[in-house]
Each structure stands twice: as structure tokens, then as C-alpha cells.
Write a protein that binds this DNA or RNA. Structure first.
Lengths: 109, 109
DNA sequence: CTTATAGTTCGACTAATATCGAACTATTCA
DNA sequence: TGAATAGTTCGATATTAGTCGAACTATAAG
């Protein structure tokens, strides 16, 4: 039952977090996790190959956005929302709200 | 007195904004503008060559973060904070607060 | 008209990121 | 033990982004 490395909350870096969230696919993963948590990778996969999905989860993990716990054969992912809130109050919430807003009114042109 | 193209507020794209802010140099420009507005490019230049600075301002402009008005020989930059607030409430404010927090307690390791 | 100033544009180069197939690892279940 | 499942790792390739010198543009001032 090997587990993952996760950065401690006091090592969270703002630009790293913003970069992780600046990819539409990764942002969509975070959005989905915010609704249902924890979740394995598979249902969040979309149409991408597994190797790409794995790459994006690595980015999210290294940024401190997601915690992955290996339980049996599946890897359960959840947002590190409490820790993020402690380090950068309101950040994740506000970005998720913005994402929801954009879903309601997509950028024109 | 040629002026710049700026995207309208309803064309602001969240991931484009996050990407623009995920570069430390660009984030620092936005931070400085939030304190003193408007400002020409020169005082925000740091030690970079003009062509790099120009590139980063282009990214900020295209994302909708900065408005540049040509007045005489200088280009005055300001944040499009009201428009950003209208499209993505709290986003810029929260990110700037996070940046301030990180400045106070830099990421460890 | 000449010079200085402020910033852009171009082009070449480098570095970082994303994509994806194929082979691999760990765990569960029959 | 063998097969299935879930996801990782590797390696090659493609795309995107950042850096910077040099030439250029527009305005202002002498």
C-alpha cells in the first residue's frame, strides 16, 4: 500500500497553484471533486488516455490541490480544501465560484 | 495616438486569467498596480529587458487584467478591477490577498 | 529637423508543458 | 496462481511559453 508524497500546507506556492488551475482539464477535475469527494481517477478521466490523466493528477498533487490516498486498487482523490483555506483564505472557493459563473456565461468569442 | 485592443469583460476567460497570474513576474506587476494606479511600464520593469516586459504586458492585456492607455510617449497601465469584479466577483481581490499572504509567509523549501 | 524617450515587433533560441502509446506495478478476486 | 483492474512510469514527440538583442515606431522637446 504505497502512498504518495504531498507537500505540507506551508509549502503551498501561489503561482504553482494558479498554474495548476490554469489548465481547463485540471480545473474541471477540481470542480468535479468539489461536488463529490473523494473520488477515484477513472470517473474524472473524460476521453483522455490514462497516462495524460495521471500527469494532470501529478500536477494537482504537487501544487497541493489534491490529496490522493491509495486504498486497495483505486486511488481516492480529494481536495485539500481546509489546508488551502488556511494558507490562502477564500482562494479555492472564489476560483470555483468563478468557474461556475463561467459555466453559466461562457466567454464570448 | 494609436491605442490598444482590449477584450470586453464578457470575453474574459478564467483559465486565461489564471495562466496570466501564474507567472511570478506578471503577478508582481499586478500587485504593484493594485497599490499605485495607473503607472507606466518603466517603473515596473525590474531588471528585465524591454522586450520581455512588453511580452508580459501583452499577456496581461489579452487576459483582460490590465488596460493600457497611450498618453503621449508613455503607456499608462491600470488594472481592470471593476470589470474583473463584475465578471468574476472577488477573484482579483482574493488572489492579491493570497499574494500578500505569501509575501508575509513565503512557501517553505 | 534632430535627438531622446518609451515601448513594440521581429526572429531566433531555449525551456517548460502537454500528449499518448506501450510496458510496468500493485492489489483484488476467482 | 492467473486474470482483471486502476493507475504509474517511460520515452518520444509536439506545442506552448519565456528570454533577449536588434531594429523599428510614435511622440515630445530642443
Amino acid at each position: 500500500m504505497k502512498q504518495y508524497e504531498h507537500p505540507p500546507a506551508d509549502a503551498f506556492d501561489l503561482t504553482t497553484i494558479l498554474h495548476a488551475l490554469s489548465d481547463p482539464y485540471r480545473l474541471s477535475i477540481v470542480q468535479k471533486l468539489s461536488v463529490l469527494q473523494p473520488q477515484p481517477c477513472a470517473p474524472l478521466q473524460g476521453d483522455r488516455p490514462k497516462s495524460s490523466v495521471s500527469h494532470h493528477f501529478t500536477v494537482l498533487r504537487k501544487a497541493g490541490l489534491v490529496r490522493t490516498v491509495v486504498v486497495g486498487v483505486t486511488h481516492m482523490n480529494s481536495l485539500r480544501d481546509a489546508e488551502l483555506e488556511a494558507r490562502f483564505p477564500g482562494l479555492l472557493t472564489t476560483i470555483l465560484a468563478a468557474a461556475a459563473r463561467e459555466a453559466a456565461q461562457p466567454a464570448k468569442s
